[in-house]
Amino acid sequence: MGYKRYFKNLDYTLVGVTGVILLFSLVMIGSASTDYGWWMRLGLDVDKLQEANILQRLLWMKKEYVLKQFIWILLGIAAAAAVIYIPYDDWRRYTRHLYIINLLLLGSVLAIGHTAMGAQRWIDIGPFAFQPSEFAKIIIIITLADFLAKREGQFRTIKSLLPCFIFVGVPLLFILMQPDLGTSLVFIAILFGMLFIASSKPLSVTGIFAGGLAAVVGLIWSHLRFGTWIPLHDYQLKRLIIFMDPWSDIQGAGYHVIQSQIAIGSSGFWGKGLMLGTQSFLEFLPIRHTDFIFSVLAEETGFLGVAVLLLLFGIFLYRGLRIASESKDMFGTLLAVGIVSMIAFHILVNIGMAIAIMPVTGLPLPLFSYGGSSMITNMIAVGILLNIYMRRQKSIF
């Protein structure tokens, strides 16, 4: 296939909006990763920073995270290009192998992975930390899409859906053992998003999802009221429910949420300006370049910056749904829907936990938060969408 055909059939709207999000993220990561102690060691004070113009502030900011993120973006672009090259329907021949590889990778984390922030999720490869659960999202989307496409039209009863739950439940169990509650929830979002399209009775799938959600809420309520056993540690449960009343534990589990609310609530329409966010710059806001990057964005760029980012994400998701609807086969449609479900859930939960309407689960903001495994995974997802779009008609290639 010639390169001209590649470029001719790309979804340039998706490519463009992805590029803008990535550039926006580099600016915000640079702003978020600057710390007050580093400025003090340089002999610079807050007043001098506030007097500096925007160009001076960008030149003075700490660049370590920006450079690393830029490298991850380049690697992600290379991964996306590789994904685009291979016709997506050829992947169906290797889904069984991918599923087994996925289980081996997730199992290896439990055996040789290292622990950080209370979870065993990473495998060290030289100077880099590799997070298999991130790539497991893409693998489960590909393998589940093939699994569902082969059984199209067969999902009419709850009994017929059980194999799907088992298919996703096996790798999900490995992830829960790490423990990684956030990624587990992403798996569930992917499963129900794809089942909604694959099932001949989507309302039944919606009912199952609503019933399962009600059961989980009821189980947590029963645990808090009567001490009923639940498969969560106390700290995990506290993180899940602290968003409802973060002020009940100001210095503990509620600290992140409170500082995020202060940052967002003090931003105004225009924001305080890049590197001028007090909650971020003075280090009140923890893990601000990853989990709470949205809080930094809101504080420094205000309502306007938030609206721009949400518009970009909205266009991205819209293009994903259009690609799903225009796919030449059910496998491609399910792939696109799985990716849209994954990205949308990440956006919803990350922004939701920043504004205290969702539990703090540690999910990054896709294509925006700092992180190598997450960035490469999301860029592969973009590559899959472009692959489906390029081959949406059999006559094109």
Results as ranks from 00 to 15, higher is better:
A354V: 13
K328L: 03
V382K: 12
L348G: 07
Y389N: 10
F313M: 05
G320Q: 08
L312A: 14
P359D: 01
T377R: 11
G371R: 05
I343S: 04
I396F: 14
F345R: 02
E326H: 04
V349Y: 00
G352P: 04
N378K: 11
V337M: 14
E326Y: 06
D329E: 12
L317G: 09
T333Q: 09
P359M: 00
R392F: 10
M379V: 13
G314Y: 11
V337I: 15
I347E: 01
I347S: 00
S369P: 05
I343C: 04
I347Q: 02
R391E: 11
N378F: 14
A336N: 06
V308R: 09
A344C: 12
S341N: 09
I343L: 10
A324V: 05
L348Q: 02
V337D: 04
L335V: 03
T377A: 15
M342E: 09
R392D: 07
N387A: 14
K394Q: 14
A354D: 07
I396E: 06
L310A: 15
M353W: 02
T333G: 13
I388E: 10
N387V: 13
M358I: 01
M390Q: 05
G383M: 13
R391Q: 12
L312M: 15
N378R: 11
L312F: 15
L367C: 12
P364F: 00
L321D: 00
L312G: 12
A356R: 01
L310V: 15
G372M: 00
N387P: 14
V340M: 00
N387Y: 10
I357Y: 03
G371K: 03
S373E: 10
N378C: 15
N387W: 10
L334R: 09
Q393V: 04
I351K: 03
V382C: 15
G372V: 09
T361Q: 01
I396C: 11
A354I: 06
I323S: 05
M342A: 10
S373F: 03
A381I: 08
L335Q: 03
S325V: 08
F331P: 05
G362Q: 01
G332R: 06
V349Q: 10
N350P: 12
L311K: 04
I339K: 08
G352Y: 01
F316L: 15
I339T: 06
I315A: 07
V337F: 09
S325Q: 10
L365K: 00
T333L: 05
V340D: 06
M375Y: 04
F345H: 04
F397L: 15
T361D: 00
A381F: 06
M379T: 13
G338D: 07
G352D: 04
G362F: 02
G372R: 02
S369R: 02
L363V: 06
S374V: 11
P364A: 01
F345D: 01
L365P: 07
L335D: 05
L386W: 11
I376N: 03
N387E: 13
F331H: 10
V337K: 09
S373N: 06
S325G: 08
A336H: 04
I347H: 01
F331I: 05
P359A: 04
T377L: 12
L335W: 02
R322T: 06
I396M: 13
A336G: 05
G352C: 00
F397S: 15
